[in-house]
């Protein structure tokens, strides 16, 4: 274990608190659209309802289909426990940034492979699009990570977060480019507008929801929790990296909570003000993110040379 016990308790409670984030975003979004909307606790109610039902498996499906929800939930649980909270982490599962990329890939592989098992067109359409996005999002995430790691000269997440608390880092152009790129990755990974519409009920427009189409009951509950855990992971990392935080414990936890709430509001605002993009335009947007990272990199090299 590294760091403060209270922060580690928050990290563990992320497994439980994660569904709160999509709930909060939905509530804020509803308010912004002039509706009352559901309570932020709605995801928990959905999970409870789904947990009470038994699972459904299409004919001829194999263990790949049945294992996928547990495997992707396990991968995301692992990722939540790897991502530190304010420079503290449980530490048993490692603390390297590249491990996160691997765990996200594991979750993606298992859900996308499971989409092939029933072989339904809608699931495969969604899975194919999700994988296509990932081809551009993964290098973007890596480059953003590298730019963040400049502050600490280390890929250790705890050190990266600790160094990001330093105000000097916030003056680096590279850090700002990383923030822009990371923002795009947050939208892709969490499946939010303008990349994907989480509220869609039209199979043809689904991306992240597509591979979930055949699932029901506890399987679906696990997959919905996985999606919520992705929100937790990405938003917590974003605040950790890009909001300068005080080093002492109760205060940085407070900053973290405020930051995550702020980002939820920001995501809701983006969702309300932007329509979903055409799917083939998304790689262009992500490519712009990669270009931003290159600019950040160039600025850093120039700074070193001067």
């Amino acid at each position: 274990m590294r760091g403060n016990v209270l922060a580690i308790a928050v990290q563990l409670s992320g497994l439980v608190l994660a569904p709160l984030l999509p709930g909060v975003i939905q509530t804020i979004k509803a308010r912004l659209q002039g509706r009352v909307g559901a309570s932020p606790l709605q995801p928990y109610r959905d999970l409870r309802r789904l947990w009470g039902k038994r699972s459904v498996a299409p004919h001829d499906s194999t263990y790949v289909y049945r294992l996928a929800p547990s495997l992707s939930a396990a991968a995301l649980a692992c990722a939540v426990l790897v991502a530190p909270i304010g420079a503290s982490t449980i530490g048993w599962l490692g603390s390297d940034m590249l491990v996160l990329i691997g765990l996200l890939a594991l979750a993606r592989f298992s859900t996308a492979a499971a989409a092939w098992d029933p072989g339904g067109g809608f699931s495969l359409m969604g899975a194919g699009r999700d994988l296509m996005f990932s081809v551009f999002a993964e290098p973007l995430l890596l480059l953003a990570f590298v730019l963040v790691a400049i502050g600490s000269h280390s890929t250790d997440l705890v050190q990266m977060v600790a160094a990001a608390g330093d105000l000097h880092v916030a003056t680096l152009p590279a850090h700002w480019c990383a923030a822009l790129a990371f923002g795009l990755v947050v939208l892709v990974e969490t499946g939010r507008q303008p990349i994907d519409n989480p509220d869609t009920h039209l199979e043809l427009t689904m991306v992240h929801e597509g591979p979930l189409l055949e699932y029901a009951g506890r399987d679906l509950a696990m997959l919905q929790w996985t999606a919520a855990a992705r929100h937790w992971l990405m938003l917590v990392l974003a605040v950790n990296f890009f909001v300068p935080m005080p080093a002492t414990v109760p205060w940085n936890l407070l900053t973290l909570a405020l930051g995550v709430a702020g980002l939820c509001a920001l995501v809701a605002l983006v969702e309300t003000s932007l329509a979903k993009m055409r799917i083939l335009r998304v790689p262009v947007l992500l490519g712009a993110g990669v270009a931003t990272c290159m600019i950040g990199l160039a600025s850093w090299i120039a700074q070193g040379a001067l």
Binding site: W51, G52, K53, R54, S55, V56, A57, P58, H59, R66, P69, S70, P118, G119, G120, G121, F122, L213, E214, A216, G217, R218, D219, M222
Partner: peptide, 15 residues
Amino acid sequence: ARRRAGTTAPSPMWI
């Protein structure tokens, strides 16, 4: 946990 909810129900694929 998934098994405890009862046997998996077979169903046709949604198209």
